[in-house]
Amino acid sequence: MMQILRTVAELRTRVRGWKEDGRQVGVVPTMGALHDGHLSLVRAAKRGCDRVIVTIFVNPKQFNNPADLEKYPRTEAADAALLAAEGVDILFAPGPDEVYPPGFATSVTVSGISDPLEGAMRPGHFEGVATVVAKLFGMTQANRAYFGQKDWQQLQVVKRMVADLNIPVEVVGAETVREGDGLAMSSRNVRLDALSRAQAPGLYRVMSKVAAAIRNGGDVAAALDQGRADLVQAGFAEVEYLDLRSAALLEPMTTLDQPARLLAAAWIGGVRLIDNIPV
C-alpha cells in the first residue's frame, strides 16, 4: 500500500531500510497535476527499480512569474489515487518549509547550458530547478531518477549538474508522451480553452514540418523563419523561440552536422507551451 510522507526524516527511514535490503530505488520528481506523461515515467521506474518514490512539490523557486505559480494546478488527492493504482511505494509531498526551512541560503547554478532558450525567457528558472532537484536527490537517496524529454533543456541541465557534482544517481530521460493529435502532454494543457486546445497541436505539426525541411537539406535559417510565420498563422499569439540546437550542449546550429533538437516555446490562449523534437 502506498504511503504519503511529508518529512525528510520519515522518508529517509523508509529508504534506509530498502537500501539495507539491497533494493534499487527510483524517483520521479513532479509538481503534481499528473497526466499520462508522468505515469509513463512511473511505469519506467517500476520496470527499472525495486521501489519507486514520486515527489510532488510545486517549487516556488523555479517560477519567475508569481501569477504563474498561483495558477499552477494542485490536485494532490487525484494524483495520489493515480499513483496508488500504479503501485507506487511512496508519495513524498513536503510543504515549502520542509524543502526550504528558515535560514535556507543555498542555490545551485548550472552555467552555460541553462542560459539560452528557457533560461533567457525565464530568469532564475533553472537555478530553482537545479536547487530543488539536488535537494530531492539528497532527500530520496534514489539510484535512478526519471524525467520526460519534453523538458529537454531541463533534462540536460540535470544531467550536467549530476555529472559536475558527482551525485550518485542515474538520470533517465523518457520519450515525450503526446495526445492523439500530437500535442505534448503537460499539466498546463488543462488551462487551454476549447479553441486554443483545438489549435495547440499546430505547434507539433509545424515543428515536424520544419524538422523535415532541415533533414532534407533545406536552409536552416529559412526553415526556422517559415516555421515561426506558420505558428502565427496557426493561431499562436507569440513565438518566443523556435531554434535548432545541438542535442547535448544546446549550442545554436546553422547546419545539420551533429545530433540536434528543434525546440520551441509559444503562447496560445494565454498559456505558454513548450516542445522539442529530434532532427
Rank of each mutant, 00 (worst) to 15 (best):
A67Y: 01
A142R: 01
V190G: 01
E238P: 00
K71R: 15
W267G: 00
V27G: 04
P278G: 14
M31C: 06
A174H: 13
D243R: 09
V129S: 02
I274K: 06
A9E: 12
Q233C: 13
A184R: 05
G182A: 03
D115M: 11
Y100T: 10
A212M: 02
L39V: 11
I167Q: 12
L183G: 05
Q154S: 09
V206H: 05
N64R: 08
A260S: 04
V8H: 07
A134G: 15
M121Y: 07
A85V: 15
A264N: 11
E86M: 13
T131A: 10
C49T: 15
R215G: 01
V279L: 07
L91A: 05
L82A: 09
G202T: 12
R245N: 03
L41V: 10
A222M: 09
V190E: 01
E70H: 11
V8F: 06
V162N: 02
V239S: 04
M139I: 09
T255D: 03
L262C: 03
P168C: 03
G17C: 08
P60L: 08
N189G: 08
K159T: 00
G37C: 13
V28F: 06
F126R: 04
L117Q: 01
Q141E: 14
G95C: 10
R16E: 13
D89T: 10
L165A: 12
A77H: 06
V27M: 11
D50T: 09
D50S: 13
